[in-house]
Structure formats: structure tokens, C-alpha cells
Design a protein around this nucleic acid. Structure first.
Lengths: 225, 225
DNA sequence: TAATCAATGTGATGCATATCACAAAATTCA
DNA sequence: TGAATTTTGTGATATGCATCACATTGATTA
């Protein structure tokens, strides 16, 4: 299925800088797909010649660690997925899975490369994106390894509220096991700490519904223990 | 000091793809510097409008974590440093310090951007570099957080041997405290584990001189406990 | 060459958190 | 609607490792 990319309402900042001719090229060379929660978008270990554009929805990037699956980061639309893999290695080095219903476009790598070559502004934006990711990744890693569980959980919750849902009330799109993989803990600890936060009046938990009651406290927990 | 970039014997793969006119532009717009072990190359928190080219030597990228300094990765020449910062934020988000004597070139960001705009091949290589880094960073983080200390230490030692020094005998360019920051442990654990590996005949340690005696074992330790 | 400071070795102790082992909900599905 | 499966809650136990507290060695400098 190919809709017209010129009028796609879900452009990234980068995409909005493309000339019409490049957009037409995209239109002619992309495959649009509707996905359901849980569907795999990119599968670690498989061969890939596509860049994926996440048009709508929320996805998790995860990687098989030495022992358990680890969720590297959450990504919400609009965003390009799989760039590192496609340019870096051809074989997908990580998986991406939809955690909500989502729409994606598969774009041929060659076409993407051409567009990258021919649009300075687009190219710059994409590079900026890489830079931002690398920095984030440095910080995330330093935090994860140094902070205690409560701190990391607080971080993750703030991230969901501020970056992903832009609201202090949201539905956790992950099971506690997945959340544990994101925060580098055990499922049990997630359960316990969530209960603690609730008891302390920092958040209200009911099922997967989370409401942040006391953001200041949550930020404090994120910074200290 | 400006030497001629055309005949620089330390080009990266990317740089070797530049046209002469771009190289001349580099020649006219770079500042060459000789550094000594321990000298700071990039300082977290300071303003930056330069990309740094590490011509010769070995450097550590480190970042102030919530509690301790963390060494994110080791980089050896030839390599560009500080790209994420300059494009991503202007304020340096991490530090880079020479751990051996080194030579660096400071390149104005504007000039670098222009060159990036005008050389498709160079541009592609730099993007590839970003991709590779992102993937590495995913893997490193997953390993660090999941493996036990012995595994991480083994990893780090193998990394030094294979990637940095290309030899199974080398001089650790870091103190045990720094090594601990690289591997996410305490100084004491580094000391202990190094002694264990020595006792087990996997490596020979004398001062900072390390010789890998049984690489197979070391790889096994890296994979398991 | 003594004296000061930095880097390393090593035991004892405590703590955060993984793991185990279930019970209880909640969800899926037939 | 009931059975089966997944998800979640919670105590008890075990353990890897940080931290503390020194001793020792090695480097630096006056």
C-alpha cells in the first residue's frame, strides 16, 4: 500500500525538510503496514535492507543480552528505526517490537541513502538524531549502572510521563517483566518498588494505570536513592 | 600550527575520501596540538565549536555519572572525537582525556559541517561510524549490566588486546581506579580479580604489564562467570 | 635520601537485590 | 463460563560486591 508521502501528517522534523521530488520517491518506494500491539517490527539476527519509519504508535528496542532480553529504549512515533543496523551491518543487531498498535512504513535502504545524499537539511537532521542518541545512550548507561533500583524506576517513570506520554497519568505499556528488563532488575523488585512508591504517596498504581501524584518526590528519588 | 592535510599519514577511512579542495580547507582551518598523557582533550560542561581529530594516541571518553566518573569507552587514533556533542548540543556532554601521549587537530565545526555537506562518501562513512557506535553502545550496556565482574573484566582485557593494542601483551594505560570506572566496579574488585586471573594462569600481571596466557579461558570467563 | 603522596593488596563486614517458592489475580481462550 | 495461562504480590534465603580499614609498595619531589 502506498499513500502519498507529500501529505503524510506524521513527518519527522527531518522528513519535513525533504523536497517534493524526494517525497515522491519515498511514495513510490515504501510499504505501509498496520501493526498490532506485540507485533515484531525488526527482528534481531535477520537480514535487513530496509529502514523503518514508525508513523504512529509506541515501540521498544530490545536486544538479547548475555543472559536476558534487555530493553534498550522506548521509541514513539514519528521516528526512524533500524538506521544503525542497516548502515552498520545488514544483519539486525537488535529487535524492535510494537508495544501499542502502530503504523509503520518500510523504506528501501538504497532509496533512503539516495535521499540522504540529495538533501543536505535532511541529512543534517538525521546526523543530529544520531548524536542525540549517542549522548542519551551514554547517560542512560551511566545511570543504569550507578543508580539503585528505586532511582532507575523513578527515571523510567519520569521518562514515560515526560517523553513518551506527555502526561502524568498513563497506562504502562509494559508488563512488570518487561519493565524489569528496561530498568535492569528482576520482576519481583519492580512489583515491590511500585508498591513502595504507591504507599509513599508518590504515585498511584492500579493495574497498569499509573498516576504521578508527587512529581517532586519522584525526581528526588531519581536523583538520590 | 597547520600542516598539510593532503599528506597527513593518519587519515581515517572517511577522511581518505575527501577531495583535495576539502582537504585544503581542512589544512587552512585546523589547529594541531601535541598532548601529553593525562591532558584533557574535551571537558564536560564546557562550550565547544570544534570537532577534534585524534591523530595519534589513545584516549578515554568519560562522563560524570550520578555518583562516580564513568569511562564510557576507549578510543584510539585515528578517530574523530566530540561529534555527538558538537552536533547535538554545543555544550560538551562528556569529557575526553588522553591516556597516552597524543596528537590532535581541532577543526572548526562550521568547516566540518561544510565538508560533510559537500562530500557524499565522507558523509556516508561518518554516518556508518555513528551507526557502529550506537550498536556497540547497546551491546556494551547490555553486557555491563548483566555480567558479573569477572565477565566484564575479561571483556575489557580482550578489548584492549584485540581492538586497542592488537597484541596479547600490553601495558594497561589505566590505573586500577580508572579500570574500575570502565568496568563498573570498585578499585578493590579490580585488584582482586586481576590477582585471581593471574593465579588461574589466564593472564600474567606484573605492575601494569599484562600478558594474556590463555585466551580461550579468558573468552570463556567473558561469556560465562 | 628521606619524606610525601599515589597506587595497590587484602581481610572483615554489611547491604541491596537476585533468586526461589509459592499464592493470588487477572487475562486469554476454547 | 470454566479452564488454562499469564501476570502480579510477597515472604525467606543466598550471594556478589561495595565499602571500610588498614598495610604495603611504588613514584615523586624537596
Amino acid at each position: 500500500m502506498q499513500s502519498d508521502c507529500r501529505h503524510c501528517p506524521f513527518k519527522t522534523k527531518a522528513t519535513s525538510m525533504l523536497c517534493d521530488c524526494s517525497l515522491d520517491q519515498l511514495t513510490a518506494n515504501h510499504l505501509e503496514l498496520k501493526l498490532k500491539k506485540g507485533d515484531s517490527i525488526i527482528k534481531q539476527g535477520t537480514y535487513s535492507t530496509n529502514v523503518v519509519f514508525l508513523r504512529t504508535g509506541l515501540a521498544k528496542i530490545h536486544i538479547a543480552g548475555p543472559y536476558t532480553e534487555q530493553i534498550v529504549k522506548m521509541v514513539n512515533a514519528p521516528s526512524y528505526l533500524g538506521l544503525p543496523t542497516t548502515f552498520g551491518s545488514k544483519i539486525n543487531q537488535y529487535s524492535v517490537t510494537a508495544v501499542s498498535d502502530a503504523e509503520v512504513c518500510f523504506i528501501d535502504l538504497e532509496v533512503f541513502q539516495t535521499i540522504l545524499d540529495e538533501n543536505k537539511e535532511f541529512n543534517r537532521e538525521i546526523i543530529q538524531e544520531f548524536c542525540k542518541n549517542e549522548l542519551e545512550s551514554f547517560h542512560r548507561c551511566a545511570n543504569r549502572t550507578q543508580k539503585l533500583i528505586r532511582g532507575n524506576m523513578a527515571d523510567a517513570l519520569l521518562d514515560f510521563a515526560d517523553k513518551i506520554f506527555k502526561s502524568d497519568t498513563f497506562n504502562l505499556p509494559l508488563s512488570q517483566t518487561e519493565f524489569a528488563n528496561l530498568v535492569d532488575t528482576s520482576r519481583e523488585s519492580v512489583s515491590r518498588v511500585l508498591a513502595e512508591f504507591d504507599k509513599d504517596g508518590i504515585i498511584r498504581v492500579s493495574g497498569r494505570q499509573i498516576e504521578i501524584l508527587n512529581k517532586k518526590s519522584l525526581i528526588l528519588v531519581s536523583q538520590n536513592g
